[in-house]
Design a protein around this nucleic acid. Structure first.
Lengths: 197, 197
DNA sequence: GATGAAACTTGACACAGTGTCAATTGACAT
DNA sequence: ATGTCAATTGACACTGTGTCAAGTTTCATC
């Protein structure tokens, strides 16, 4: 737990995050990051063991910058499962665009496949918990549709909200953010709740 | 339109398909393929311009081997949109396991990113047409839920059935094939049709 | 049977990008 | 002055794709 204030460590994260934000995560090389941080390429390795390691740290850094915790508050304060589900999807839909480039870089990390894939998977497991909380609440209210267990419904919701899906719908299909949120809320409600008004 | 009978061309496709089938598409190198086809690595390039090119040809080859067209028949013969939707999802759920390794290799082709990604995208656009046909049929029957246009519903269904989602649900979440099919049918019905009995 | 064209082989190489190593410099504290 | 830590420079190994050149096999065809 070193404290990364305005240290080199911090500068690297900033440079990495910034490079990932412009462009869509393609071809951000260690040397690019070093250059952006005004540092030698090798110095990066003094702070991060590998590209995957740096990428993973960058997602955490971005989470802090963007106040992920605060963004989660509305869904946590929701008074019923339905509201919680809607709030969670709204939060997520507004959040993904920010982490997308990093996510993409992490998901398609060609080289240190194991490490990068693992880092991203860990990250997504955290997000799964948010899904589970909403589903659990629905279940306890007796609102969860009969076709689902808490587990399978969580799996489904989690998958529905995956970054890949977000990418396909917004990038390939051209949906805008508001549409993405509205339609995914629609799907989630109709799928998970019986009186899906 | 050369005719690939028992030619080298054909042997390469066979070797590639076979290598992709065991293992999950990771680290299948050009040299591995050449070795499996009992050919020099360079000879592969006499038949396929690049790894992406070969991979793409392999998906087509597999489609033929597995009789994709015949598998599509039941959904095409369905007498209403609902049946067509269900049949299409059932077909797809049974089909994905076979193309998954190749799909994965194509999606995560680190190098010739453009070509590989493009090849896979083309492939998926074909599959989108199957989704659209079902949605269109529902629409013409007045069965498509009010929240959707034909386009947006097709986008949603297409995304729902993506290989990434299949991968997450079956590989990560551990769903078996029957569960995948049943639950995705459930989601599609509830989402797209108003009287989602 | 010689000629020639295709298909294939061998071996070498360029290229990109990651990660490693060793030797050196600079700053700062004690 | 000494030690230590951060950073630099430059070189190198490694992996895998794709390219090139020169030689060999195979086979058809005159």
């Amino acid at each position: 737990m070193s404290s990364p204030h305005q240290t080199t460590h911090h500068k690297i994260l900033q440079a990495c995050a910034s490079l990932l934000s412009d462009g869509d995560g393609k071809g951000v090389r260690m040397s690019d990051i070093a250059k952006a941080a005004k540092i030698s390429r090798q110095a990066v390795y003094l702070h991060f063991a590998s590209r995957a390691d740096l990428l993973e740290a960058t997602t955490r850094y971005i989470d802090e910058q963007l106040g992920l915790e605060e963004r989660l508050a509305p869904s946590r304060q929701a008074k019923n499962g339905r509201e919680r589900l809607l709030a969670y999807i709204a939060m997520w839909g507004a959040y993904v665009p920010h982490i997308y480039p990093t996510a993409k870089a992490l998901m398609t990390a060609s080289d240190s496949d194991e490490a990068a894939a693992g880092a991203w998977r860990d990250r997504m497991i955290d997000m799964r918990e948010g899904c589970e909380a909403a589903v659990q609440m629905l279940y306890q209210e007796g609102q969860l549709a009969a076709a689902w267990t808490v587990d399978s419904a969580t799996d489904m919701l989690w998958t529905l909200l995956s970054v890949s899906n977000w990418e396909q719908l917004t990038r390939t299909c051209g949906w805008d953010q508001a549409t993405y949120i509205k339609q995914l809320q629609e799907v989630a409600l109709r799928t998970l709740i019986d009186d899906a008004g």
